[in-house]
Write a protein that binds this DNA or RNA. Structure first.
Length: 259
DNA sequence: AATCCCTACAACCGCCCTTAC
DNA sequence: CGTAAGGGCGGTTGTAGGGAT
């Protein structure tokens, strides 16, 4: 047995809301509140609308504290960051943005951000570091010896980003400390597949417990690495919040390390 | 000027979760 | 404890408006 519909779809009005309907709904809620029951609200307010439609109209459009359009770069970054961690949990993402609704964030993602981030970009310069150089861990570099090592190293980066996609597709229920451990284990796994490319990697050494290989650039010239911005974001997130940038070691044109 | 195409976003649909009884 | 109803949410659709042809 299916559930009873919340309203009679044949008789209630559907489609775009008129300014008059908006005014009726707004004034009713401002005067009486929602009454804790959206299903009965339209009848009380004198609207020939489904209760769910009223709820959506109020929450996504009529609420006084709503912002529409004009997403800032900071908001873009927050959305991207949370999407990587949480996936399409728009209501949670929207809760981190003052005045934004889940519908707004979802629409913005689907129409603009997704396309923007999926557009491949050519990386020809160092990735900006959010961490001051003085706070970066020590980086020791090992020059690569064989050009073929580069492609293998690049492959390993793609493998890493691929892993991280899967890793974040299911948000971890564990607290952050435990997730960091999970991440390290995942990275260690990926690192094992990268062993054959050791000569094209360098070591990131934070002076205590952690050492990681990463990728490097060609000694013969800049190596244009095709990655979407999203992949870079994933990689950054996978390897840690304190993304740090290594100095370009001798014999290497560019190298970036994250921890 | 007319038509087509694309983009943005409002609104709906349907499912799942929560809660009251 | 089971069931029904309401709320919440993500996915999808419809459509208006603007730009391109």
């Amino acid at each position: 047995m299916g559930r009873a519909p919340c309203c009679d779809k044949a008789t209630v009005k559907r489609g775009p809301w008129s300014p008059e309907e908006d005014a009726v709904l707004r004034s009713h809620i401002e005067e009486y509140g929602t009454g804790g029951n959206w299903i009965t609200l339209p009848k009380k307010a004198g609207l020939n609308r489904c209760g769910k439609s009223c709820r959506l109209r109020w929450l996504n459009y009529l609420r006084p504290d709503i912002k529409h359009g004009g997403f800032t770069e900071e908001e873009d970054n927050i959305i991207c960051s949370l999407y990587r961690k949480l996936g399409s949990r728009w209501s949670v993402i929207a809760s981190h943005l003052r005045g934004r609704t889940d519908n707004d964030v979802k629409n913005y993602w689907n129409t603009k951000l997704k396309k923007k981030l999926m557009t491949p970009t050519i990386i020809t310069s160092n990735i900006p570091s959010p961490t001051p150089a003085s706070l970066l861990p020590t980086v020791k570099a090992e020059p690569y010896n064989n050009p073929s090592d580069i492609s293998r190293s690049v492959d390993s980066i793609f493998a890493l980003t691929q892993d991280s996609h899967e890793f974040y597709s299911e948000p971890s229920p564990l607290p952050r400390e435990c997730r960091a451990k999970e991440t390290r284990q995942l990275h260690r796994h990926s690192r094992a597949e990268e062993v054959s490319a050791t000569s094209s990697t360098f070591t990131v050494d934070d002076g205590s417990r952690n050492s990681y290989g990463n990728w490097s650039a060609s000694g013969a010239g800049p190596y244009d690495l095709f990655l979407s911005e999203l992949d870079i974001e994933y990689l950054t997130d996978l390897l840690g919040d304190d993304g740090c940038q290594a100095e370009v070691p001798q014999g290497l044109h560019r190298s970036v390390a994250y921890w």
